[in-house]
Structure formats: structure tokens, C-alpha cells
Amino acid sequence: MEVQEAHAWPSTAVEAEAIQDRLRPSLELDDPGPRRPATIAGLDVSYAEDGDRLVAAVVVLDGGTLETVEEAVVPGAAAFPYVPGLFAFRELPALLAALRQLDTTPDLLVCDGAGLAHPRRFGLACHLGVLTGLPSMGVAKTRLFGTHDEPGRTRGATADLMDGDDVVGRVLRTQDGVKPVYVSVGHRIDLDTACRHALALSPDFRLPETTRRADHLSRAALRGA
């Protein structure tokens, strides 16, 4: 698939924050998003023990059957130091390279990370959405930002993830009695639609199949390397 060239790469946290500020107005947050995406891509990155070497993986699933349609992996190195709130800058070059390897242009990107539920309202899902122009959403394993009440214990239970008076995401229970995940919009999708997709992508396990398969693929490639 075609992906536009990324912006000039920052060397400092100040430069990285300026890029987030410049790109944030490009977010389309009133788009309802794809109701029945034919293809859905999961993106994940695994790191070697040294913390610098990594493998980015993209797995494209059929939106109806959840069967794997296409895969891509790209080894690389962290492109930016670890700075809270700027984690996307470590992974974006390798993730964009993996997306460029795809023959399929997915209808939806699902990131293992945050979108609007981010201290600067511009997490990885937002960044990828703006650079690709595709609908994107984040499903995080842990809470990066915001406060919330505990959702109910049954599958499908939710609680709003709040930043003051603003809803920045939703805490979603994908299976009875398991820890919830943290869903937030990235670009060109609304929160209700994002949660519906996250639940549909998680028929048997806590994490969406997009994340599970991309994680397995990146870890296997890292072991092979």
C-alpha cells in the first residue's frame, strides 16, 4: 500500500512535541468510521532485550471471518529515545515500512497503543491515521492516560475513560471476568464504532485477534533474527 513520506524525524523531545502539535489539527474526529470493514490490519512491535533492536509486524485480517489475509514484518532499530508520551516516534518508521510492504490497503488500522487517550491527545493510532489517511484506533493493554470507574465484569461492559470532563476513550471488558482493554479513537472513526470493532475482534481472548497475531508474528521474527 502507499504511505506518504513521514515528516522530518525529530532528534529532541521538543521537536517531537512540535510535530504532534502540527499534525493534531489534521485529525478527523467526526467521521463515524467503517461499519463493516472488509479488511482490518493489526500493528505491533516487539523489542529485543537490548531495548533498541525491534521487529514491526502488520497482519491483515478478513473483517468477517478474521482469517489472515496478508502479513508483513520489518526489522529495525528504535528511532527515538524512550520518552513518555512520545513512544510512537520509536516505532513509526518500522511500522510504516511494514505497511508499505502490503499489497492490501486495509479499511481499518488497529494499533497496540493509544489514540486520543494520550497526554497530548495524539498517540500512535492518531499519528498512523494521519500519515496513512486510513481510519485508525488504539486498543491498549494498560491505561496510559485518564481516569475511569471499573466497568462491569461481563463481556461488553464499558466505562468512560476521562480527562477531566472530556471522554478520551473507553474501558472495555472483552471477556467475562478478565482485565479490560483501553480503546481510543485515532482518526476517521468514532468511539462507539471503535469499541464495537474491538469486541468483534476479540471472540475468544482478552486481546483483539489483530493484536494477538501481530504480536506473535513480530516475536517469531525477532527470535529468527
Results as ranks from 00 to 15, higher is better:
residue 207 L to M: 14
residue 60 V to M: 08
residue 111 C to H: 08
residue 84 P to Q: 09
residue 21 D to M: 13
residue 134 L to T: 00
residue 54 L to K: 01
residue 73 V to K: 04
residue 38 A to W: 14
residue 179 K to G: 12
residue 11 S to P: 00
residue 125 A to Q: 09
residue 169 G to M: 08
residue 210 T to E: 10
residue 202 S to A: 14
residue 9 W to T: 06
residue 30 D to K: 12
residue 127 H to L: 13
residue 32 P to Y: 08
residue 151 P to K: 00
residue 96 L to I: 13
residue 74 V to F: 08
residue 197 H to R: 03
residue 163 D to A: 12
residue 37 P to Y: 08
residue 209 E to Y: 11
residue 111 C to Y: 11
residue 145 F to T: 05
residue 148 H to W: 04
residue 208 P to G: 11
residue 100 R to W: 07
residue 219 R to W: 09
residue 212 R to D: 01
residue 164 G to V: 03
residue 210 T to Y: 08
residue 95 L to E: 08
residue 220 A to V: 12
residue 77 A to C: 11
residue 170 R to V: 09
residue 46 S to E: 09
residue 70 E to R: 05
residue 200 A to M: 10
residue 148 H to G: 05
residue 174 T to A: 07
residue 22 R to L: 13
residue 18 A to W: 11
residue 71 E to I: 04
residue 15 E to G: 00
residue 132 T to G: 06
residue 35 R to Q: 15
residue 3 V to E: 12
residue 161 L to H: 02
residue 158 T to G: 06
residue 5 E to S: 15
residue 207 L to D: 04
residue 203 P to F: 09
residue 218 S to T: 05
residue 68 T to K: 11
residue 51 G to T: 10
residue 94 A to G: 03
residue 143 R to G: 03
residue 44 D to S: 02
residue 13 A to V: 02
residue 61 L to R: 04
residue 125 A to F: 08
residue 160 D to R: 15
residue 44 D to M: 03
residue 225 A to N: 11
residue 146 G to W: 05
residue 73 V to W: 11
residue 36 R to A: 15
residue 35 R to I: 14
residue 167 V to H: 05
residue 158 T to P: 04
residue 31 D to A: 14
residue 150 E to N: 04
residue 207 L to F: 11
residue 174 T to P: 12
residue 213 R to K: 14
residue 140 A to M: 07
residue 103 D to Q: 13
residue 185 V to K: 10
residue 108 L to V: 09
residue 174 T to D: 09
residue 118 H to M: 09
residue 1 M to T: 14
residue 146 G to I: 04
residue 64 G to Q: 13
residue 6 A to F: 14
residue 24 R to G: 07
residue 78 A to M: 08
residue 132 T to W: 07
residue 10 P to V: 05
residue 144 L to W: 11
residue 196 R to E: 15
residue 101 Q to D: 13
residue 208 P to I: 01
